[in-house]
Structures are given as C-alpha cells and as structure tokens.
Design a protein around this nucleic acid. Structure first.
Lengths: 186, 186
DNA sequence: GTATAAGTGTTGCTTAAGTAACACTTATTA
DNA sequence: TAATAAGTGTTACTTAAGCAACACTTATAC
C-alpha cells in the first residue's frame, strides 16, 4: 500500500466544494443548485470545480459515497464487530444518513443515492461474510450480501416512513433475531 | 480608489495562518509558539508562511492590527458618531480587545501590541477631530489625539486592573463628562 | 421569430502554494 | 567539546488554483 499523500491544496479545495454543496442542500433542492452557486459559496473558481468533478451529479455521487463511508463501518475499529453487530450498526448508520439527506428531492438524484448505497452495503456485508468464514463459495457470499443489503434497506425505509415513536435501536432489535436465524444456518 | 480585489487564495491562506495562530495562542504563550507550530496547525507549507509574514513577530503585529481595526470604528457606519460616542466606543472596544489578548504573556509582545494600539487610536481620534472641525491646526489635532489616546488607554487599563464589578459601560460613563469638558473648550 | 440573459464546460496563460533541499542558529546532552 | 536535534529563513522548481475568454445550451421575454 503506497500511500502517496495528496496535496493539501487538493484536500482543502475538495472540502470547500463539498461543504458548500452540503450547505446549499440544506436550503434548496438539488435541481435548483447550479455549479456557479456551489463555487461562489465555496469561494473557489468555477474552472477549479471542473478539475475535481465532472458536473454536479458527479459531485453528488462523490459526496454521498464519502458520507456513507464515514458513517458506515469502514474504519479499522469496526473490523472486530460480529455479523450481528455489523447489521445493527449498518442499519443505524444508514437510517441516520437517510434522514441527513432527506432534503434531496428529485427522482434522479434519489436513484443515484440508492445505487451508491446498495454498492456500499454489498461491499460491507461481503467483506464481513468472508471474515466470518473464508471457505464459503464466492457466489453465495454475493447473494447473501445482496440479501442483507435489501433487508437493511427495506427496514431503514420502513422505519423512516412509519414515522414511529420507536427508536431505530428498538426497531432493529425486534427484527434482528429473525435475520440472524438465516445467517446462523450457514 | 482602484479596488483591485485580492486573490482568494491569498485571503484563504492568511485566514488559515491567523486563525491557527489565534487558536494556538489560547493554549500556549507567544514565546512557546514556533512558526512550524503555526503552519502545521494551519495545514499550510512553512515556505508559504514566509510569503505572507516576515516572522512570528510580524504575524503578531498584523493580527493585532487587523483585530483592532475590526473592533474599533473603522467601518463607514461609525463615521457618523460624535466625538463623545467615539471615545465611548473606542474605550469599550479596546477593553474588549485587551481581555481577548490577555493570554499573551511576554514583555516584548505586550510592547508591540501597545505600540500598535497607540498608533490606531491616534489615527481614529485624529480623523474624528478633523471631521469635527477641519479648521483646527494640524499640530493641535495630533496633540489632542495623543491625549485622548492616553486617556482611553489608561482608563481601559484601570478598569481591567481594578477587577471591579462595575460594567465598562458604567465606568466610562462616569468619567466621560470630565473628558468632554476639555474637548468642548475647542 | 430573435434578442437577452444566465449557466455550462473548456482553454491558455498567470500566479500562489507545495516541496525538498540548503546553510544557519540554538539548545540539549553525552 | 563535539554531537544530536529542532527550528529558522531562503532557494529553485513543480503543481494546483485563479482568471478571462470562448462556443454552446436553455429559457424567458419582447
């Protein structure tokens, strides 16, 4: 792993852009945000924006990816979690993340975000399942990871829509045993 | 007045440096702060520091100047203040400023700060006196400005040292009439 | 229709910031 | 006393960001 650390100017500029974008997202919908808006808010040149991102859709993807990575267990300390704890953590992180981007309105953007979420979750669960038992067939790993992803996504969606007084922690606790039955059958 | 606006990179870098310096000043004394400390905190290159400032003493001067300018009546809206209101405002601003930099410890630095304060205050009072009556002799203007500066500085110092329960607003209100007597004799 | 306005990507060129090296000064300490 | 270490200014060079112009797309309005 050759970690050539990136130029501090690049990091700074990226942060300025993404912070500006997130800030603007609080007050107006994605379709109403222009690249010019973002660069003015970020006090960087418009040409510089295009050195970092293809367009605002590309920026959205990158921001969502980054925020998901930050929220979900992509750090070392989470490597030690059991599959059960991982499912729980991912559910809670995803639910938190979804409420944080709930202001994004357009259909197209929602699809973009969902696609990234699926990708991230499948990655996380695949890694965790391999950690659990490296001997399992690779095809089965992917199938199970997709199933867990669908499970967690639908539960998270249900919790948000049901607008319940129940805390997300309680919600997942009440369903987790059923999910675990299937996994423990491995 | 040809206002060639400065490169946003310059503004950003300056802010990073001064913010880092102010932050470090909260936790350690001036003599314990190195240029390297500042640039690391600011996440800018050490060479870049020297493009903006001669050394940390120069930085101190610039920061103090800027903060004073920000606090004291150097904006347009304060142009309309009477001499009495100006004295009051300057006293309050200076007292606020002095408490904000009270953590700076060394003798040398205190002298630097005091020198800048004197310069700024004399400037402010001179301008205000000229506004009042452009006909007054220039020498007299400077003498009076220096006197008002000494007056306000000593009062501010006295308020800080006395560690009184009295609010700065009350303090200056109780003394302002005596000062105004002299000015009104003009 | 077409004029006007505002945003989009892209370009060549300028300038500020990053980098790594340098000689130099101060301390600390072995 | 010499050796190690850490900070200071300074340098030549590289790279990223700023700038201003460009052709192009949309959309609103006259």
């Amino acid at each position: 792993m050759m970690e050539t650390k990136t130029d501090p100017r690049v990091l700074r500029t990226r942060k300025l852009i993404t912070d500006a974008f997130i800030k603007l997202s609080q007050s107006k919908s994605f379709s109403d945000i222009s690249v010019k808006d973002i660069t003015e808010e970020a006090t960087i040149n418009r040409a510089t924006f295009y050195r970092h991102f293809l367009d605002k859709y590309d920026l959205l993807e990158k921001v969502v990816e980054e925020k998901l990575h930050l929220n979900l267990g992509c750090d070392k300390q989470k490597d030690s979690l059991s599959i059960e704890e991982t499912i729980q953590t991912v559910f809670l992180s995803l639910t938190r993340f979804k409420t944080s981007v709930s202001n994004i309105s357009g259909q197209e953007e929602k699809e973009t975000i969902d696609a990234i979420i699926k990708l991230e979750l499948v990655n996380i669960f695949s890694r965790k399942l391999i950690d659990m038992d490296a001997a399992i067939n690779a095809d089965l790993i992917v199938k199970l990871a997709k199933w867990l992803t669908a499970t967690v996504r639908s539960m998270s969606q249900d919790w948000v829509e049901s607008d319940t007084a129940e805390e997300p922690e309680e919600y997942i606790a009440s369903l987790l045993p059923f999910v675990m039955c299937g996994i423990e059958a491995l």
